[in-house]
């Protein structure tokens, strides 16, 4: 039994940052990197299923990213995943989620897992695209924003909840193998123990380039292109000036207006 979890190293920006000279991205000095928050839940869900399945079960984490993305894999390995796969090629630096899905589809074909999980979206761009596009390319059953999952390895179907708008959930069954995008709160992601972190350093991480996946020669194309990137007008609060009495009066007005009092 094998579950493949696709994870992403997301980029976090501080409040003050500068754009790249070409106007199509942010100066890389301003980034901090971290494992996508949603992916913690996807990894945890895979680990829980593996632990319930016992001997012979395996969780494999895969990411498409440069060597900074290794940290994301190590984080998942420290929690208990068995091995990692990192795919990178400099030509992937500017591609979109659909292109990433094309790369992941080749990895899934190679690994032939019983289930594929991704986070419901990434915390930096929120495309909510990669996992489902991957399912489309594979022709696999799929469901997005899964907030509860009942899957016994080997079973032909799984039962899941999809978290819909307004807290409503839909209960459905799905044929397996499937690609599921995992929602926050589906479980309580564990923190890696210090021992787990030490062990993660010894776990195998396979590094692949596009040729190794048979994707050389410009086979990985995007469904969109960044024309320009820019800071939006005013992320800054409208400061309410005046004396405390004036400020409070204005605040009361805002409250009453928004509350329809």
């Amino acid at each position: 039994m094998k579950i493949l979890v696709a994870v992403k190293q997301v980029s976090i920006l501080d409040d003050e940052f500068e754009m790249r000279d070409d106007g199509r991205g942010v100066d890389a000095d301003f980034f901090e990197k971290d494992l996508n928050e949603f992916d913690h839940f996807a990894v945890e869900e895979a680990l829980l299923i593996k632990e319930a399945a016992g001997e012979g079960a395996e969780v494999v984490v895969v990411t498409v990213g440069d060597d900074e993305a290794d940290d994301a894999l190590r984080t998942a390995l420290a929690k208990g995943a068995e091995r990692g796969i990192r795919v990178w090629d400099d030509s992937l630096a500017e591609v979109d989620s659909i292109a990433i899905a094309k790369v992941l589809a080749k990895v899934v074909e190679r690994e032939a897992p019983d289930m594929v999980f991704t986070g419901a979206q990434s915390a930096d761009f929120g495309h909510a695209t990669t996992g489902m596009a991957l399912a489309g390319l594979l022709g696999w059953p799929h469901a997005a924003v899964v907030s509860k999952l009942d899957f016994v390895p080997g079973a032909a179907t799984a039962t899941l909840h999809r978290e819909l708008e307004g807290g409503l959930e839909e209960i459905m069954t799905i044929q397996c193998p499937a690609v599921l995008s995992i929602q926050l709160g589906i479980n309580q992601p564990r923190y890696a123990s210090l021992r787990g972190i030490r062990q993660a350093k010894q776990k195998p991480v396979e590094e692949l380039d596009l040729d190794a996946l048979g994707l050389g020669g410009g086979a990985v194309t995007s469904a969109s292109r960044v024309r320009r990137m820019y800071a939006p007008e005013k992320g800054q609060a409208e400061i309410i000036e005046g004396t405390v009495a004036e400020q409070a009066a204005r605040l009361a007005e805002i409250i009453k207006e928004l509350r329809g009092i």
Partner: peptide
């Protein structure tokens, strides 16, 4: 050591 660190700590 790096520009990224200098920015982080200045803030």
């Amino acid at each position: 050591a790096t520009p990224r660190l200098r920015l982080t700590f200045a803030a």
